[in-house]
Design a protein around this nucleic acid. Sequence first.
RNA 1: GGGCCGUUAGCUCAACGGGUAGAGCUCCGGACUUUUAAUCCGGCGGAGCGGGUUCGAGUCCUGCACGGCCUACCA
Length: 507
Amino acid sequence: MGDDEGRPSRLAQLVAERRAKLTALRARGVEPYPVEAGVTDGLSAVAAAFAERLAPGEGSGQDVAVGGRLVARRGHGRLAFLVLREADAELQVMARLDRLGPAGMEQAAELDTGDWVAARGEVVRSRRGELSVDAAEVRLIGKALHPLPDKWRGLRDVETRFRRREVDLAVNPEARRVFAMRDRAVAALRAELRDRGYTEVETPMLQPVPGGAAARPFVTHHNALGIDLYLRIAPELYLKRVVAGGLPRVYELNRSFRNEGLSPRHNPEFTMLESYEAYADYHDVMDLTRALVQRAAREAAGTTTLTHAGREVDLAGHWPRRRLLDLVRQVTGHDDLSYETPPGELATLCRDRGAVVRDGWGAGKLILQLYETLVEPTLWQPTFVVDYPLEVSPLARRHRDDPHVTERFELVVAGRELANAFSELTDPDDQRARFEAQARARAAGDDEAMVVDEDYLRAMEFGMPPMGGLGLGVDRLVMLLADVHSIRDVILFPTLRPEAGDPGDPG
RNA sequence: GGGCCGUUAGCUCAACGGGUAGAGCUCCGGACUUUUAAUCCGGCGGAGCGGGUUCGAGUCCUGCACGGCCUACCA
């Protein structure tokens, strides 16, 4: 495109100019992609070490060797200022003819923004007070063939930001902020679990029977074994087998995969924290969940009082625990609703209130539907919604006082589910009956219903301790903490359709 | 999957009732030894792809591609 009549596009011209420089360098025996950089000092370390030192115009007498991406250049004839950036740190390099000589100055002048550059020299403060390296040597260590986006306004186009995250990270501080926050949040979750004596484990992502959640899986194929395998939709069943094996506290923080539609809140691969603790019940897990989220907030955002979508979210203190049925009774004004209310009556109520209904749904599913439609979006401050209907909770233990519900909770913050947890079902006969009910639903056309997992049932038959389990959506937690509203902003390389055109052409 | 909206130079943005598109950054050439969105002078570069209507389409209609938002399923 734009390439007809032999007239190169602007981009092609820019790339050609940079390629010409690269060719000229090689002709002079200079390698534009050397194996070693000679960088011994980090930009941020140098900036920090001299932050409070040196008066304008003063030299330190100390040499450093730094590296970074050239993000700005200000030439003054016999003097040039080069700005190097490494992550969020920037440092100015002064290239002076006096110091570098004609050949060195020429090399510095040939650099383009975007190039990776190493500079060695004395740390000084410029006359205008900017910390600088008075370069004795400036060296190209990685030539950029493509121009950087606008140095002031960065890269705005959302599609390009996701497709070329390297450019987004290079020029948009906001992108770096979000992923730095993600790192701190994940580290905080691991630290809290470690402090509580949890063991981090890794269980199969390739599973012969996809279990642990209600979702459609991705299917793949193993050539040597000649079998289909599924990318896991949850690690749950394997983790519970590890607890059955005698590790009392385990967790896994890693990817799961669900073959569902994409949205600002759903990516086909997403990161979930799942933890299981022997001798704990769902009340204990609520305490754990609150500790995890509060610690992640403190260590990633620096506070438990967040702003999200322009509204305050206060994660401090204790969080209310509300029974799901009570919330539905309250929002509908029907105080007599129960899991024994005839499904036909509930279906009518659903339709009246704009909730989607399908044939064959029982009271539990219908009440859940009312909750999800009418209540969940309105819960802004952190709330534990407890005691979910039995029929929609095939892996959760029956409630000790109420046969219609399970000891299950979801944590809702900012109108969204952040975690899902329960007192785990440990009775193999009950589990078999639940699987069979799921299998019947599956046979009736529910392709998200679970299948009977005999390996898992046999593991249960060896005996499981009572345990509490947790699933926490890590991407959504980061969205909450970072105050971003698309899951694609917290996943480095979100799933996108391939670009049109030759897929082998690197743009 | 369905609905609505978007796509102008490498990047960030304009303009106009349908009449042949303009700026900043980047880049190239020149000046400049203390700038920091450096400055000054000169220069290169453009309508996602394909049809249609029209004397004439970036602008109107339409098909496709990709994206965004809403919706459906889920975390």
